[in-house]
Amino acid sequence: MFRMLLKPFARFFEVHAKAHYRAERHSMALTAGIILAASVGGFIEIAPLFTIDETVESAPDMRLYTPLEQAGRDIYIREGCYLCHSQMIRTLQDEVDRYGPYSLAVESQYDHPMLWGSKRTGPDLARVGEKYSDDWQVRHLVDPRALVPESVMPQYAFLLAAPLETESLPGRLAALRTVGVPYTDDQIANAAVDAGGQAVPDTEPADGVAERYGEETNIRLFDGRRERLTEMDALVAYLQILGGLTDLPAETQPPRGD
């Protein structure tokens, strides 16, 4: 019985070994074989993700990062925050209890690249937005151990002194549009102004941000100071929107016990 089951495999291996014996005398045959064998898996796993509709849910209320939030995201990447903080709540009960509704694919639909992460030296940040005040975030970034004595997080006080570079933001948004984020011409043209506007509430530039990105947009002082636009403003603006791009996860996953 066992022998019979193995027979086709033995047969296959016999043929395969013979084919290999011939192929290993021709470098191009080996090359072609390697490329072929190494292409199958990737093709079958990756290509359908772009074509199967159910891969990404549709969330009509999904909003885009504002220029200030996108600038903050770029700083998050620059500082390697993703190396210690994931942004992906798995479909496990303890994670949902600790961090909130599990992450949906649609939430990172416009994330070029995604920042799901691979290691939690610190906690997951997928839903950290609005969990703490702006003031807490700023003080925590300036001196993490002043607020959490056990923390091993590096301090980022220098962000408070670094003016935010906004000139390149139209170019960045345009590049993001090229790869598929639906920014409008208006949003791209005003990106530099909007970045500053989001951090100075009750001004004309701030109204422009609300007009272009919606009334729900967080328009606040972020780093607590009106006179300067800093990298701290951008990073805190980004942290505060995490988990807030769409309400779909909360709508589809009612809290336990309700």
């Binding site: 891969t55 994330d111 690249p113 960045r172 790869v179």
Partner: peptide, 12 residues
């Protein structure tokens, strides 16, 4: 600075 051609789940 550049932005990946892929996003979200496909990028992952």
């Amino acid at each position: 600075k550049s932005y990946s051609a892929f996003a979200g789940v496909q990028d992952a």
